[in-house]
Amino acid sequence: MAFFNKVKWILGILIVFVLIVTTNLIDKNNFIRVRDAVVTIYEDRVVASDLIFDLSKSVQEKEIAAALLDTTFFYNRSEQLDKNILELLSRYDQTKLTKKEKKTLNNLKSDFEDLKVSENILINSNFIEKRSFFNTISDIQENLYNLSKIQLSEGKRQMSISKKAVDKLEIFTQIEIYLLALLAIVIQIIILYKPKQRQETE
């Protein structure tokens, strides 16, 4: 009987061990998903939205200067603004991009290259030839708008992933509690159970 008791104890401990390892692996996976979603929302969505805002401000500054025929801006401020725009685009490129976002960002980069050309045309024409400049500004604004919409869409998607992971954590936590309670009962039965010995008749 000593051997049978040892087997019962080993089985009981093994069941507890397997249950704990399994639930910990599931919990770990869900925690990783929540953490990654939160990091992505900040690093790749909030930061990207801030960069879009800064790019929009720079474009608006150029647009207002052209509308007001501000020659001082184009001869002094515009070059520094172009450097800032390149830096902002470079920082944006370092975020995690979706395929659609990458394509839109490439279009935006191309638009900014076109803006330099149309800006030179504007200056060389003594601020008479504005159409090309404002058309390019319009293209840039459209791409910035599309990028901002992508941020909202991706932000919602990441929040949905995070919410699903949290919901799974809650469900598995409840299941763990019920399983541990059931397991405690089963182990008690295994340990306390003593098979009836046959009484020898004399």
Rank of each mutant, 00 (worst) to 15 (best):
I64G: 05
N84A: 05
I140T: 07
F73K: 11
R35T: 03
D54R: 10
E154M: 06
S148K: 15
E176W: 15
R157T: 11
S132Q: 07
K99T: 15
T95R: 01
F133K: 10
V39F: 00
N124V: 14
I121V: 15
L97R: 05
L68I: 05
L97Q: 07
G12T: 04
K194D: 15
T136S: 09
F53G: 07
K28D: 10
L51C: 02
E154I: 04
N30G: 00
M159H: 06
D93Y: 04
K102T: 13
I187Y: 10
I140K: 03
G155K: 03
I137H: 08
I32Y: 10
R45S: 00
R45Y: 00
L89W: 00
R198S: 03
G155Q: 07
D70A: 04
I64N: 08
D50P: 00
L180K: 07
Q158N: 09
V38W: 00
S56Y: 04
I187D: 11
F17Y: 12
R33N: 10
V46D: 02
N120P: 08
I41F: 00
M1I: 12
S56Q: 09
N126P: 02
V117C: 04
L108I: 13
A2K: 11
L169V: 14
A184L: 15
I85E: 03
Q197D: 12
Q94N: 06
S132F: 04
S110Q: 13
V34R: 12
K196P: 08
I121C: 06
V21C: 11
K102F: 08
F133Y: 15
I171K: 14
N126Q: 12
L25P: 01
K196G: 07
A181D: 06
D70I: 02
S58D: 09
K116T: 13
E87W: 04
R45G: 00
Y178N: 08
Q80S: 12
A37K: 00
L115Y: 01
E113L: 13
K100P: 01
K168G: 11
T22F: 12
R91Y: 09
E79M: 07
T72E: 10
F3G: 06
L152G: 15
E202T: 10
I191Q: 11
D82M: 05
G12L: 03
P195N: 15
E43H: 00
I20W: 02
L180H: 06
E63I: 08
T201H: 02
D93V: 03
L180W: 07
P195D: 15
S56F: 04
E113A: 14
